[in-house]
Design a protein around this nucleic acid. Structure first.
Lengths: 174, 174
DNA sequence: TTACTCATGTAACAAGTTACATGATTTA
DNA sequence: TAAATCATGTAACTTGTTACATGAGTAA
């Protein structure tokens, strides 16, 4: 899986964690979890079992620096080191990864729909359309007031959902 | 992770495996691997360590039926059982999963690009654009003569890449 | 004082990756 | 006959998931 098999290679979730910490203040592991949990554009669950080990890896590699805030619940405020900054930029600017088509549940299924009976296909496409429209309405309500990072992602999610609607409309005519 | 926590729940790769077997003849585990390896629209590596265990799970659950072809290399030809057919259709027609935005490396990074310096952002976007154009050319060349399942996926991949180009063009003007 | 939220973390499990092992069949 | 391809599979490793445990701070 490592593309550039070097010392700065980051997984997708590690890159996302670094960038989440980079563009905020007083970030704790817990806040990274919350951000992933509530984000409608990022598909990780924000599970503790993913975040805490990933942050431990990033600290071990010297990409993150943690400072105790002094309260009695052992809160650790995280910051990127210069090396972490470099690793994040390298990860974010890797054109091979940025241009890959990713994992798309709709795309995967759209192929399969062509093999179903007319009735099954029609039902699947109609139900999916309803669900997409609901998601669009949700995303549009979620958009106002967001920081630029999440706003860009939501804009792209909206564009993707509209693209899917156009595909469904076009496919309906066959 | 199981959404409908019932006995027919399939992971994404299990659904993709079932559908790959469903719409072809004389499919072996090896051919499923090859199909995943060469597909530019499906992001699994087609590793043996993923495919063989998944097929074993599907056979154990009664969704797949294997028939020895009789040659001396233990080739097993796979087919869906009626239960497997049902599970696949339920999986393919689940509107919640079909409408989810998936994992998109471009979307994840586009948010982060807004936090970079103008120079870094410009370089990242230009390099990504070059890479996307190359991928579009490849997909266009790959398209002719494909079966409808893969053709639909490639069409959607192309549409996604063009959407990204439009986003890059629009973002360039800021 | 009870409940909710903030905060860190582990344990058991699921599932994917690379790399390797083995052997049959086909093609150059 | 040598190399490539077809075919099945395991082993070690990585990483993500759910569920749980623990405790501090805050608001009803």
């Amino acid at each position: 899986m490592p593309i550039g098999d070097d010392a700065t290679h980051l997984t997708e979730i590690e890159g996302a964690i670094l960038s989440e910490i980079a563009h905020r203040q007083n970030v704790t592991a817990f806040r990274v979890r919350r951000a992933f949990e509530v984000s409608p554009s990022v598909e990780w669950s924000g599970s503790a079992g993913a975040i805490y080990p990933a942050i431990r890896r990033l600290r071990t590699r010297g990409f993150l620096d943690g400072q105790a805030t002094g309260d009695r619940r052992a809160t650790v405020s995280l910051r990127l080191t210069p090396e972490g900054e470099n690793a994040m930029v390298a990860w974010a600017c890797d054109p091979d990864r940025a241009s890959s088509v990713g994992l798309d549940p709709f795309r995967l299924r759209a192929g399969i729909w062509t093999t179903l009976t007319g009735q099954q296909r029609k039902a699947a496409m109609q139900a999916t359309e309803v669900s997409i429209r609901a998601n669009i309405a949700f995303l549009e309500g979620y958009l106002p007031g967001l920081d630029p990072v999440e706003a860009a992602r939501i804009e792209l999610s909206l564009a993707l959902q509209r693209l899917r609607l156009a595909y469904l409309e076009q496919a309906r005519s066959f």
